[in-house]
Write a protein that binds this DNA or RNA. Structure first.
Lengths: 145, 145
DNA sequence: CAAAGATAATTGATATATCAATTAAATCAA
DNA sequence: TTGATTTAATTGATATATCAATTATCTTTG
């Protein structure tokens, strides 16, 4: 019969948990008056960590499609959070710069993000988080083809 | 300094793992020649489990937005996988019926879905899956506001 | 019963995901 | 050096996510 109920399926909980967290986190950021999505924040953060990254490297890091990154960057440029200039050494690329506005925004959001993470993990012990991390990594590698 | 690297962040692994799984599963389904997305499959499955469900109930079950469900149903009707008729008792609603085509499709996809799940969980022991499940549920409830 | 409130679904606007095809520039190889 | 291959990014098409506003119908309640 294998009457596998949706609620019993691990992947369903996975989806649900990540969506819950995203909604929760985005709600808090929006409520606090920040005009930025979590994905945009993450992209900017990534660029700050590695200002020389190509769009493809960014895509790999935030685990998104190249096309999505192109469009997100378009948006961020429109919002004056990024500057896009021709790259001096490789004309296929662009040199991306996080603007001062963006830096302020990112800093402002940071404590909220940390608070969100803390609240989401409340009452969960560290060993379990570690197990979770390992299981997820195993799953990721199992799905690499 | 809190130089929290992205890779260290649990939520990042969560996103990455669910995306890996989805891409992996969708790839296999598409490769096998089935013209359906995982989300569409899930919606149809949910309706099969509970044919009387309202769209809102479906949305809650698959953890999607009402608007998304409306649009997915439009699509499924176009693809002849669903029939939408006026509901006999409540004119605000629709009576949704999974077509015979859809039933065949769902059955055909089923073994693939199960194989995908098995492969994704390979080498992971059951206790750890159980821990995972519990942690995720806790996280979900932590984010309920 | 009528007005107010609740419920089911849709629509519009914007953001993101994904695949395939394309363009432009760089690099490699004969 | 030219011609083939690879790489960086974009574009188009389609699917989904999310919020707010709207419509239509039902349910309460005064």
């Amino acid at each position: 019969m294998t009457a596998e109920k949706l609620g019993d399926i691990l992947f369903y909980s996975l989806e649900k948990s990540i969506k819950s967290y995203r909604q929760f986190a985005q709600r808090n950021i929006t409520k606090a008056g920040f005009d930025i999505t979590i994905d945009q924040w993450l992209l900017l953060k990534t660029l700050q960590e590695d200002p020389e990254a190509t769009q493809q490297q960014i895509a790999d890091k935030v685990f998104k499609d190249y096309a999505s990154i192109t469009r997100m960057i378009d948006l961020l440029v429109k919002k004056k959070l990024l500057k896009r200039k021709p790259h001096p050494e490789d004309r296929r690329r662009f040199a991306l710069t996080v603007t001062a506005d963006a830096e302020t925004l990112i800093e402002g959001v940071q404590p909220l993000v940390e608070a969100n993470r803390r609240q989401a993990l409340q009452g969960i012990n560290l060993q379990d988080v570690q197990v979770l991390r390992e299981v997820l990594e195993q799953m990721i590698s199992n799905c690499q083809n």
